[in-house]
Amino acid sequence: MLEVSGIRKTFVQGRVATEVIRGISLTVADGEFVSLIGPSGCGKTTLLKIVAGLLPPTAGQVALDGKPSLAPSRQKAFVFQHFNLFPWRTVLDNAAYALELDGVDTRTRAERARGLLQGVGLAGFEQYYPAQISGGMRQRVGLVRALLLNPRVLLMDEPFGALDALTREVLQGELLRLLAATPRVSTLFVTHSIDEAIYLSDRILVFSMRPASVVREFAVPLRKPRYEYNWRRDPTVVGLREEIWNLLREAAQHGT
């Protein structure tokens, strides 16, 4: 279980202090998928980076299974908006990056990477370089890289934001399939898209404008697996979409 408690973050640059996060606490249970949605620049990504250990919080604690976890760790895998694959590594070596850092031998890591790559339709592309494949394929590699080490926490920063609408939907489905195969992982997902949050999440946290705090929390009561039916038409979705949309619009207006 991932526990984030009392996180505050203030960036200080010279004499200017900018408060970005004002007290956020949340928990993500094992196997749970929680989305963070809010106006741009509200501090969602900052929170994600604090959880990953990439930024120190001004105050607050991050705990994984009850133990403090404020430093980067391969228990907490990150999927980046702009993929961040290493251009000098092949698809296979990018996918196996975390395993390599962990000291797993070449053959084992190739075997494991091949298995997951095949699962996302990348069989045959193992020896390609990132520059040779499409954006959708690159983010599949990013997903495999994150999940290959069986992390406890999956942190995703608008992972499909840089993709076209169609590829985006396909990847959302693939993410759900991959996660169904890794039942214990706790996912924290930053997005701008209300539909994406509804489709993927168990719970959605709506953030306020900067300094960020959680305005409201929604549970998504849709049955799983959601990639097997047309969830968009479900009356609960229509209502949920409307409610989140109103909240976000309000938050955005307050900010300006």
Binding site: A52, L54, F78, N84, W88, L101
Partner: peptide, 27 residues
Amino acid sequence: EDLLETARAFAATQAQTLRTVILPSSL
């Protein structure tokens, strides 16, 4: 910088970052 951050996110050590990011990037 993004790739350095990526190595950091995967908890790469200084030496691993040097070998897997800085060296190939500067080749």
